[in-house]
């Protein structure tokens, strides 16, 4: 048998394999039949067929008085857009960046061993929490450096999936809560929290 014939046979086998797969996974109908039927059908016919197999979900989107009041409260405390943009720009100017653990070790802010110890210590602290706690209350310490260090440790623990953030944009509150085993790493997304000296001071004085 020459190689050309062998190639043809393998091509046929591939097509058959594809067909069997589709038949096993799909609705036991040849897609080519549907495709050809679709091509010859009028759009009115297709629409009518669709309507006879369509059972739309019935649901109501309605605002409640409670939500309306919350939204009004939010509106009252919301700073003007121009001011918020300025804050964002000034935050950008500070050129915040993610520091690697190795950089912190080089800067002698932490030691490799101490970092793991601190992580475990904080995990124990979180395990003892009876209910979700405000993010800022949790990381806040008397010194700016200590607060930053706790925020840094917490970000590691959150990334591990040990703790989850509960974000309430209306109240502008961020709570932290211990994850149960089932929730760990189920779904994750990044959530930036800006900390600088000004913010720390504001939060500390407001505390």
């Amino acid at each position: 048998m020459d190689s050309e014939a062998l190639k043809e046979i393998s091509f046929i086998l591939e097509l058959q394999n594809d067909w069997i797969k589709r038949k096993a996974l799909g609705l036991f109908i040849d897609p080519f039949i549907i495709e050809s039927k679709i091509k010859i059908m009028k759009k009115e016919e297709l629409a009518s067929i669709f309507l006879s197999s369509w059972h739309p979900i019935a649901y109501i989107e309605q605002i409640t008085i409670k939500k309306l009041i919350n939204a009004l409260d939010y509106w009252k405390v919301l700073t003007p857009l121009s001011q918020r943009l300025k804050e964002l720009e000034s935050a950008k100017e500070l050129k915040e960046r993610i520091m690697k653990v190795s950089e912190l070790i080089n800067l002698r802010i932490i030691s490799d061993r101490k970092f793991n110890e601190e992580i475990n210590k904080m995990k124990e602290e979180i395990k003892n929490l009876k209910k979700p706690i405000d993010y800022w209350d949790f990381i806040m310490r008397d010194s700016y450096e200590e607060t930053i260090f706790r925020a840094y440790l917490l970000s590691f623990i959150i990334s591990e999936g040990f703790v989850k953030l509960i974000i309430n944009p209306l109240e502008e509150k961020i709570l932290i809560e211990l994850c149960d085993n089932k929730e760990i790493k189920k779904e994750s997304k990044s959530f930036p929290i800006v900390i600088n000296y000004e913010i720390w001071k504001e939060k500390r004085d407001g505390k």
Binding site: R22, G26, I29, F50, W54
Partner: peptide, 26 residues
């Protein structure tokens, strides 16, 4: 759902019918 009550245009319904049927078989 009756045809008169569906607020969607006939073109929209036809495109959706084709899309669902074609995807479902494959």
């Amino acid at each position: 759902i009756s045809e008169e009550l569906s607020s969607w245009r006939i073109d929209t319904l036809a495109i959706l019918a084709v899309s669902i049927a074609y995807i479902a078989t494959k």
